[in-house]
């Protein structure tokens, strides 16, 4: 069976600028894809093409088997979309807005009331239903945006920076909502907050300069970090330089960094050659040398580093071509 969302060499030009360049990936049921990239990398443009707001210059996207260029209405029926910044009709009350969306989605009468009620409940909006959207806080507005996106219980959800500008509690709420819905849907969440990827995503697609530069599980991405499998060792600060020199000579070690801590201790960060696992070797060697280790810790590598490495590399390559 074809995945629920398929991006097929999606490309979009704005005048002479290629904003999105042959982006292809697909999303299956149960997957939450984190769509990452620096600002201006083409995330929003890509999402706007999937949702039929913009036409691709070439390539296409399919949602539940429907081509967005050929059958945009069929695609829109099966999508829930939270546009960037969650634009809403500010003069309407929350209830009126949700009713409007329900009507356009083809519900009427009791079914309409039920849908509006359910969406409002899921997005925790029941206490502000009668308030005009303009009077709501940012967090509530975002939830209204989410409520209208999930009102018809769509198989596919596209959320453009759903947690941008929210406080930590509000972020938590939005993520929890996404996680709850995840098993039954195919979800694409764009973000530039990397903790979000760990919190909700089963996969991360990184784009830079309109191109996909990585498509992997967050843990796999981490292996691309220069700090992946690095070992942090806390020892007494005196004599740390000599020890670092000795460790550097070990064949599995690429580099050793010294970070001085307070209270006469220091951290040695031992970076492995080729991202190998060196913890066991290193621990054995330290024991053999009789070094007193107070802390020993294997780093996973930070997504931030990977993100920087991947996206700046793309920038450099683009600059080199220019």
């Amino acid at each position: 069976m074809e995945p629920m969302v398929v991006l097929d060499r999606l490309t979009r030009d704005f005048g002479p600028v290629r904003a999105v360049d042959s982006v292809s990936f697909s999303v299956r049921r149960g997957e939450v894809v984190g769509f990452l990239g620096p600002n201006g990398a083409g995330k929003t443009t890509t999402m706007r093409m999937i949702t039929g707001y913009l036409l691709p210059t070439s390539g296409t996207a399919r949602v539940m088997g429907f081509d967005v260029v050929e059958a945009p209405l069929e695609v829109k029926r099966r999508l829930g979309y939270l546009p960037e910044g969650a634009p809403l009709y500010g003069d309407m009350t929350v209830e009126a807005l949700l009713r409007f969306v329900a009507e356009v989605r083809g519900y009427s009468g009791a079914e309409k009331r039920r849908r509006v009620g359910e969406a409002a409940e899921k997005a925790q909006l029941l206490d502000v239903l009668r308030q005009p959207v303009d009077t709501l806080s940012k967090g509530y507005k975002r939830r209204v945006g989410l409520a209208q996106a999930i009102l018809h219980d769509p198989p596919v959800l596209i959320l453009d920076e759903p947690t941008d500008g929210l406080d930590p509690n509000q972020k938590y709420d939005v993520r929890r909502l996404v996680q709850e819905m995840a098993p039954h849907k195919a979800i694409i969440v764009s973000t530039h907050i990397l903790e979000e990827v760990d919190a909700v995503c089963t996969r991360a697609v990184v784009i830079a300069r309109g191109r996909v530069v990585a498509d992997a599980h967050p843990d796999e991405l981490r292996t691309l970090s220069p700090r992946h499998n690095a070992v942090r060792v806390r020892i007494a600060a005196d004599g740390v330089e000599g020890l670092a020199k000795q460790i550097r000579r070990l064949p599995v070690v690429r580099e050793v960094e010294i970070e001085r801590a307070m209270d006469g201790m220091a951290d040695l960060v031992v970076l492995p050659r080729d991202g190998r696992e060196i913890a066991a070797d290193l621990l054995g060697w330290l024991r053999a040398q009789g070094v007193a280790v107070t802390e020993f810790f294997v780093e996973q590598g930070r997504l931030d580093d990977v993100f920087r490495v991947l996206t700046t590399r793309a920038e450099r390559e683009a600059a080199a071509h220019a």
Partner: peptide
Amino acid sequence: TGTIELLMTLPV
């Protein structure tokens, strides 16, 4: 206000 994006991505 950007609501045109909301309107045009509804099945209308």
